[in-house]
Design a protein around this nucleic acid. Structure first.
Length: 156
DNA sequence: GCCAACGTTGGC
DNA sequence: GCCAACGTTGGC
């Protein structure tokens, strides 16, 4: 018996939007391209299948939480790190000693109305959200149970 | 397009 | 191990 955790994962909609996820096979995708150690560690060490994900559009107009998803696999090596033709290729990584891990993420729900960053920032109780902190660049961040329930309440 | 904040690299 | 230089992120 394990308690499910909650996360926020950023994606630039110009690169991969929640609508792209909706069109993906099984509405699921490998979360490729993370090249930050802290974000990797969250996926590798902390995420479990069934964990809840807030899907956030960064570099968007406006930036917003646009839906929810679910962690759909255990962590495994990001295949793009071995692909010389990929923008995410890492020449220092080998299949014997992979540096970058990922999980599969499966779409749960697209909000009918995105929760803009502006709206989140003015919501009492969400001041603590990591994504809202000034200068926060981490693409995967933990979400507390309270933050999770407040966000879902806003989205309902 | 600007630029502050951040993370990484590499010379020493 | 320090830290300046550099590249990237991402809101605005």
């Amino acid at each position: 018996m394990s308690v499910r955790s909650h996360w926020l994962m950023k994606s630039e909609p110009d690169v991969f939007s929640i609508h792209d996820l909706a069109k993906a096979p099984n509405r699921s995708t490998p979360w490729e391209g993370v090249r930050n150690y802290q974000a990797r560690n969250y996926m590798r060490d902390r995420m479990r299948p069934g964990d809840g994900v807030l899907f956030y559009h960064s570099n968007a107009h406006p930036p917003a939480i646009v839906g929810t998803a679910v962690v759909a696999s255990a962590a495994y090596p990001d295949p793009t790190q071995f692909d010389p033709s990929s923008a995410y290729h890492d020449p220092k990584s080998t299949p014997e000693n992979p540096r970058w891990m990922l999980v599969d993420v499966k779409l749960d729900r697209i909000f009918t109305k995105p929760l803009t960053r502006e709206r989140l920032a003015e919501t009492t109780g969400l001041e603590t959200m990591v994504v809202l902190q000034k200068g926060s660049r981490l693409s995967i961040t933990p979400v507390t149970p309270l933050e999770w329930s407040l966000v879902l309440e806003l989205a309902s």
